[in-house]
Amino acid sequence: MNIFRLTGDLSHLAAIIILLLKIWKTRSCAGISGKSQILFALVFTTRYLDLLTSYISLYNTFMKVVYIGCAYATVYLIYMKFKATYDGNHDTFRAEFLVVPVGGLSFLVNHDFTPLEFLLVIMYVSYDMALCGPGSNCSHCFQILWTFSIYLESVAILPQLFMISKTGEAETITTHYLFFLGLYRALYLINWIWRFYFEGFFDLIAIVAGVVQTILYCDFFYLYVTKVVYSERLPL
């Protein structure tokens, strides 16, 4: 664990808590994209299935439980408790245009299968590489679901950014949420540089997805720093 990864996790936690408190305190989810929150809940669910099978550290387990709990609590508040304040008319990004391609890509590009092996699996030729069957264990499933969650997380914020561009403005608290959410993966990029030089750790899938994810926030970061820092509303 290095300082960049720790501050990255704390920034992520701050974002999740800020959003949850904003909705809970104001009893409103105006300006919040429910679709992005569903996608984040899906990201955490598919990434943290290993909670059931492996123990890494108390910190790791605690944070995973908090992330999953807050994600589902946020989705509950948006679609159930404060449903009347959900702005569905502006939350129109087609999330299926994200989930389907990401799902396909996670099968084709992951740490377990090359595309050729994948075809063999599909044709069920190579028995031991079967995804889930008597001859395999669930590690392949977990690996593909982890890859799916990495790819999905990199684009999960798009419905939210799309909604803000449609409404033309965002509450200041929502911009703080987005700032910390974008900052977290930017800090993870520095963490991966650090781990590459000091631990020889290198995970191309996470790095490429993390770069894409951070690039999506660049436009917002510029607006955030030039506008919100001077405590103006964020006109786009």
């Binding site: 992520h12 890494i56 740490h111 690996q143």
Partner: peptide, 10 residues
Amino acid sequence: DEETKEHDEL
């Protein structure tokens, strides 16, 4: 079949 990667990051 290489040991499936364990992911220690969140």
